[in-house]
Design a protein around this nucleic acid. Structure first.
Lengths: 233, 233
DNA sequence: GCAAAAGTGTTGGCGTTACACCCATGA
DNA sequence: TCATGGGTGTAACGCCAACACTTTTGC
């Protein structure tokens, strides 16, 4: 059975970076640790991979256990494996990042796990190398959202173009031209009119769109240009 | 010391996908395994992470031990962690991929490790999930090389524009227009004239360029457009 | 009627493509 | 001198950024 018996075995952890959008800003789901080490400090949500569990399954499980969230966009970010990154014991951490729309998900389930949505501008210092992980996740989001229709994962099922624009402006912290943004997005063919209008507005009501799922899935990996290159530095 | 003592510990492996270019085609460095399991079969080069070794260091070490290669472009690709992927024992594999220029590196050191350069068109079946890993690495190469000056890692220090074009044609297996390609590349400011010419040619000798290292490093993450979108499918 | 937000139109510049021609080399 | 491959030029097109006007809504 064991050809590799003399090789070292390491702890393998999962850490999840969960990014959400509330219509105004990008937020991060963080937990106050209720176990040692670093009890009481802010941290990403994480856990350990089980002996008989695929990595991806493990990530979904940890996400579900700690937040109740399911059916969420998740992708692997990177592995962090510096020797001293967890001072308690050598641990290799596989980092996933997830995108969700805050309003559509039950925030009670989240609260009950000691988890809180915290806007990026108020991010506290996190344990271990979790700050670095969050930075990398934001880089990845900014990178991918400029080229692929990733941002839609952060919006509710029905959304308006101005909402979509607010999202992009929040991701890149830049202002975008309303007219150009609108034309650019409509020309992708990713948006389908629902026939409804956003009733929350106090002025002219914006048209509600939904995602063209077929096109979204088949053309996800194509290259788009959602953000002007000049804005990306 | 051990807050996590009851958690499972897993084998953590490194696998390296080494892609090279010989002036005509993209090749893959593979080894014939000289240990069990799967002795005698083709495989990526790999090894296990040591207890007191950073992941990145581990990747460099394994690359060096098995090929003698050093000072090479390496990036983390992805982690593979399905339960049954290595039938001998549950192993989580961190996959790195490296790009090198075949001619510039000592091929004797490579041969002495039972490693061989094999062109992609003749890739044999590999063990475990290594086929999937290679597929992913090629996807990544094609993705990044279209946007970032990654391809230069596959060329010798001095190169001609026609060589560069051959490289891109090999990566994407498409023909490119000579004139447009040349102008596009020259306009990036990434190429510096060496003043020399390629003496290998039997007809008009092409100008040898070298990479503008300053610009390469500072603008690596900027978005370029080395390959027409229409070619990328 | 007015303020505030949403929708639509136009223009000019720049980059990209698709093409043709000239130059250098060695057989 | 001819074949082969390398270097440069140009014109048409399309995309995109910059900007102005009209429409809807609630107070």
């Amino acid at each position: 059975m064991s050809y590799y018996s003399d090789q070292p075995h390491l702890l393998v952890a999962i850490d999840c970076i969960i990014l959400g959008f509330d219509g105004q800003e990008i937020k991060l789901l963080l937990v106050k640790r209720n176990f040692e080490p670093e009890l009481g400090k802010w941290s990403l949500m994480g856990g350990f991979v089980r002996e008989n569990e695929d990595l991806d399954v493990s990530a979904s499980r940890i996400l579900y256990e700690l937040t109740g969230l399911t059916n969420v966009y998740v992708e692997q970010l990177q592995v962090f494996g510096k020797v001293g990154r967890d001072p308690a014991e050598r641990t290799v951490s596989v980092v996933y990042f997830a995108l969700i729309n805050i309003a559509d998900h039950d925030t009670e389930a989240v609260r009950s796990h000691n988890a809180f949505w915290i806007s990026l501008s108020q991010k506290p210092d996190l344990i271990f190398d979790h700050n670095e992980m969050v930075g990398l996740a934001l880089d990845r989001l900014r990178y991918k959202a400029a080229l692929h229709p990733l941002g839609f994962e952060l919006l509710p099922e029905k959304f308006t173009i101005p909402q979509l624009q607010k999202l992009y402006e929040a991701i890149y912290t830049i202002p975008l031209d309303r007219r150009n943004f609108s034309r650019k997005l409509l020309s992708t063919g990713l948006l389908l009119e629902t026939g409804e209008k956003d009733q929350n507005s106090t002025t002219k009501k914006a048209v509600l769109y939904r995602l063209n799922q077929d096109k979204y899935q088949s053309k996800f990996h194509a290259f788009w240009n959602f953000v002007p290159d000049s804005m990306l530095g």
